[in-house]
Structure formats: structure tokens, C-alpha cells
Design a protein around this nucleic acid. Sequence first.
DNA 1: GTATGTTTAGAACGGTCATTTGAAATAGGA
DNA 2: TCCTATTTCAAATGACCGTTCTAAACATAC
Lengths: 224, 224
Amino acid sequence: MTTPERVLQAAVQEFADKGFHEATVAEICRRAGANIAAVNYHFGSKESLYREAWRQARRVADAAHPPDGGVPSSAPAAERLRGRLWALLERALGDADLELRMMQRELLNPTGLLDQVIHETIEPMRLDMGRIVRELLGDLADDATVDMCVLSVVGPCMHILHRPRRAPPPPAPPPAWLGPGRLETLAEQVTAFALAGLRDTRRRLEERAGAASEAPAETALRKR
Amino acid sequence: MTTPERVLQAAVQEFADKGFHEATVAEICRRAGANIAAVNYHFGSKESLYREAWRQARRVADAAHPPDGGVPSSAPAAERLRGRLWALLERALGDADLELRMMQRELLNPTGLLDQVIHETIEPMRLDMGRIVRELLGDLADDATVDMCVLSVVGPCMHILHRPRRAPPPPAPPPAWLGPGRLETLAEQVTAFALAGLRDTRRRLEERAGAASEAPAETALRKR
DNA sequence: GTATGTTTAGAACGGTCATTTGAAATAGGA
DNA sequence: TCCTATTTCAAATGACCGTTCTAAACATAC
């Protein structure tokens, strides 16, 4: 592998681990087995390297885990939701997939690339998920309800990224349901949970619409 | 307000905005209208100030939004869940509550206080939520299922913290359902979603248990 | 008044970091 | 082999930051 390739790979690791500001050029070069000056010689600056690291992370992530989970767009909405959640969880749980970690850091500590990241990665995903959710909710759902449901569906997958990742100390071994073979169970559980929530939201929407058409003069009561 | 009080308040803001490493003593003192040397004079070091800022953020947060949402522990589990989610969302959406933001930064970029934060804040919350969830799921639920459901319930509230917070630019005004009066709608939606997911999980657990007792020789089939 | 504790301003020290520099090493083609 | 362009290397540069120090101004209590 050439020097710039090794540097790029080390940079993705380092940026995903520590974020832009806390990652140091020196450590990246040490990891890559390259000289300090390699970054500026091959990439021009730390910022350019960061941009390239983003592109690289995205390439790797898309190649390893297609965002739709391999479910064809002709499949029923529930299956497409399952595929997308599966892909998200694979990315969140796997150690090799670093794009999501870079994304969370970018959201928390924007470096100027944030707008581009939102535009190229987050927004498309949000829109796709919104389409699936709208299909599952039916035509009664307004945009706000769809958005909130997307939040409820995607939230758990993103939140799992925050689990503390440390060297394995005796006090707190990772729970069994985060072990290697458990992705299947977790994806199943998260999907079922999301589908149940969506079914219930749809039921409430239809209930409210039914009540409104039966007694159109009255304000629809908020469900307790 | 005395100088150390002003410095502490500015420190909470600054640490929540930028995290420990990117926050600078100079900026904290500028915000507080105090001299550069004030931090080291009154708090000894940037690290001590950080510890004190944590305690302060926690005091403010607990005073403003009790973690149980004001729902008494004698209330039914569904109501207690509603109260906790309400409190979480209030904290996540409000601009004044900075503890959650510090927590996310600490989880992403641990500074050494992480273990203490987990022990004092996150773990109790997780355990409380686990008790509520277990009560809602019934006795058939194993620990892994409870943990995964807590993830599904808490995830959306934490994920909402990641919404990009910027100065209001023309391209992307915040969606209406994140406006000031919408907390009620959002809390209602997230709670209902969570309760529906929990009901469904319970139903699946009981179904599986029923199938297992009816045909104990056979392995329980995984639900599609 | 004196003494003690607090605050301010400015300068300086030591450390880390990204970047630059100039020379040495290497590769490839004539 | 010689020449040239590219790559690698170690050291230096300049900026930023946390911290410390000094000296002076200010407040409060005795």
C-alpha cells in the first residue's frame, strides 16, 4: 500500500476515534508508518485530509453495508424499514464502519463540513426513511407526525453509538446482547418495536379522523 | 454575582458548547468578565473548573426538570414512563439545560470524568428506566429484552440532541414540530410510540411462551 | 490605621501542534 | 551511469494555550 493510502486509512481511524481537533497529524503519521510531513506533502493540509477521510469512510461504508440493507425497493414498506434498520445497526455496531462515528462528531463539533455532510448523507437518509414511514402510516399522517416517527425509529440506532467503548476492563464487560452474534436479535427487536409504534400511531390517526368526521362540530379530543 | 459564580456559569456554557478540550480558559474568563488568572486563582486548574461545572450543570438541571417528570412513584408504570420521557425531552429541547450536552460530549470524548458520570448519572437513569420497562413488559422479559427496550425508548430523546443547532440561516428554519409550543405534542408522540412498542414486545413474549408450553418439544420459531 | 484576602493587568514559561524548510534518499528514464 | 523528478526525513518555525508570576489596585475585617 502506498504512503498516501496508509495515511488516509490511518486518518479515518484517527478522526473517527478522536474527532478533527483532537486527532493529531503526528499520531496519524505514526499509525501509518509515515513521516510527519507526509500529510502536508500528499494532502496539502490537515483539513484536506479530513475531507478525503470523509469520502473514504463513505466509500467503505457504502461498500460494506448498502443503506437499504439489500432489500429491493419493490418490497413492502415494512421489509424496507427492516432492511434500513438492519444496515444502520450493522454500521453502528461494527468496528470497521467509521462513517457514523465521524458523523456524530461532526454534528456535535461542526468543522465547516457539517452542511455538506447533512446535504449529502443525512438528508437523503432522512427523506428515504420518511417515505417508508409515510407509507406505513397511511395518508392521514402530516409531515410533523412523519418526522417525529422517523426520530423514534432512527433514534435507537444512533443512540447505540454512544455506548462507551473502552478497553475491556473487569468492572464492566459489555452486555451479552451487544456481543458479536446478537445483531440479529437486536435488529429484530428494534424493527418490531418500531413497527408496533408505527401501527399504533396509524391507529391513533385513524381514530382521530373517525371521531372528527362523526362529530365534526367538536374539537377532536386529545388521547390520554 | 461574585467572580467565581460568573466564571462557573460561563464555564458550564462554554464546556457544553465546545467540550473540555476546545473550550479555552481565556474565552471562559472573557464571557465572565473576569481576568485570565481568575480560573486558576479560584478553581486551581481548568480540570477542577470542569468538575465544578459538571456539579453546577447537574444542580441546575435537577432543579429545573426533576428526572421523574414530577410523576409520583406510586403512579402506574405507563404514567411514570411518560413523566421520565417528558423530563428527558424538556432537557434535550431546552436551551438552558446543559447537562445532557456535556454528557454527550463526555461520552464521545471521555476526559477521565466519564466513569464518574456513568456511575452517578447514566446508570441510575438506566436502572430506573429498566424497572419501569420491566414492569410494563411483564415477568417473561429477560434482561436483554429489557435493555433493548430501554434503548428503543430513550434513543429518540437522546438522538434529538444531535439536531444541528445553528444561528437561524435562511436555508433551513427549524421544523415546526421543534418549535416552542410543540414539546407537548412531541412528548405525547414519543411516549405513545414507546408504549406501543412495549405492548407489542410483551405480546410477542407471551406468544412465544404460549407456543413453547403448548409444544415444549419443539424449538420456538422466530417470528417473522 | 494594619492586615488579609480578592481582583486586575501584563508578561513570560513550557508544552503541543500544524506547517514549512532544506537536505537526503529513492525511483525511473535517457 | 547520469540526470531529473518524486518522495522521505529530521529539524525548525510560528501559533495557540494553560499556567505561573509580579506588581499594583481594591475590599473587608480587626
